[in-house]
């Protein structure tokens, strides 16, 4: 039974990783670079909820909406100020720039909120017990339901709306998209907004599940990247599966190894994928 419980915890962690990895994959698909500031955008999202929900005592759902909007807007502003200038550069320059952006964001977080660890709500939540002794906390239900809703919304957006289809078109072939008359700048803006909102959601859920502290996003960046690579980087659907695989493996691994090595499990899976099938197990775009 313990195993089932770990699978459940792994699914919860996997949901968080999946949301993060989908954001990384979307930006990679359009802009062709691995965004190293994605983890710290997650942290920003988590802190905005801390401000609106914990400090201002407004309802959680409202705090989540505000956080998604603020983080998305911030991401778009960063693009306007910095990344946009590198459109015609080698994407590698964007990667380096995003690495710098990660530190800028983290130092701002530390300046504003200090280095200490916060929780959304003090006190211990009672776990709900159900069939076969499985336990789940109300917050974890929020995480699971929230993730499913966001992924359905994303799916509908990518499949049903003109902008979503244009995003997939640009990811397929950016040059052809331009020749077709697709406004790629608008597509890029939209990608950043979605990437930012998804990062915020991942950060909030991570904060709900554990705690809020300045390095939380950076610390989870490696498993997020691993999930994106596992799913075939650039393929948002693969990223969802990648997140779940990594999350469940990480939790199950605690049966055998020290829990502090959870990120190493993600890394090990990633290394195996890079050796065996670098395009990802879910047929992502070619490297």
């Amino acid at each position: 039974m313990e195993i089932l419980q770990l699978v459940l915890y792994g699914t919860i962690l996997g949901s968080i990783l999946a949301l993060g990895a989908v954001g990384v994959s979307l930006t990679f698909g359009i802009l062709r670079f691995a965004n190293f500031s994605h983890g710290d955008l997650m942290t920003i999202g988590a802190y905005v909820v801390f401000v609106v929900f914990t400090v201002m005592k407004l309802p959680l759902w409202l705090a989540i909406i505000v956080s998604l909007a603020v983080t998305a807007a911030l991401t778009a502003i960063i693009d306007k100020l910095i990344y946009r200038n590198f459109r015609n550069s080698d994407p590698v320059i964007l990667l380096i720039s995003s690495f710098g952006m990660a530190l800028i964001l983290r130092s701002l977080i530390q300046l504003i909120w200090g280095p200490s660890t916060q929780v959304y709500e003090k006190g211990i939540q009672l776990a709900i017990k159900f069939g076969g002794g499985l336990r789940i906390k109300p917050d974890q239900i929020i995480i699971l339901v929230g993730t499913v809703l966001l992924i359905i919304a994303l799916h509908l957006f990518l499949r049903k709306t003109k902008m979503g289809k244009a995003m997939r078109a640009v990811a397929d072939n950016a040059e052809l998209a331009r020749l077709t008359g697709i406004n790629t700048e608008k597509v890029i803006l939209c990608t950043w907004l979605m990437g930012g909102a998804l990062a915020a959601a991942a950060g909030i859920f991570l904060g709900l599940d554990t705690r809020v502290f300045p390095e939380m996003g950076w610390n989870i960046l490696l498993p997020v990247f691993a999930a994106a690579i596992l799913g075939g980087i650039g393929n948002p659907y693969g990223a969802i599966a990648g997140g779940l695989v990594i999350g469940i493996s990480q939790e199950l691994s605690t049966q055998f190894i020290d829990p502090s090595y959870k990120p190493a499990v993600a890394f090990a899976i990633m290394v195996v994928i890079l050796i065996v099938r670098p395009t990802g197990i879910f047929a992502g775009r070619s490297s």
Partner: peptide, 23 residues
Amino acid sequence: YVPQTNNVFPTLTVHENLEMGAF
């Protein structure tokens, strides 16, 4: 303009390709 190669979006459906033409 119809380029010589890579002139469709491969992961988009035929229908979606046509829709993109009218972007």
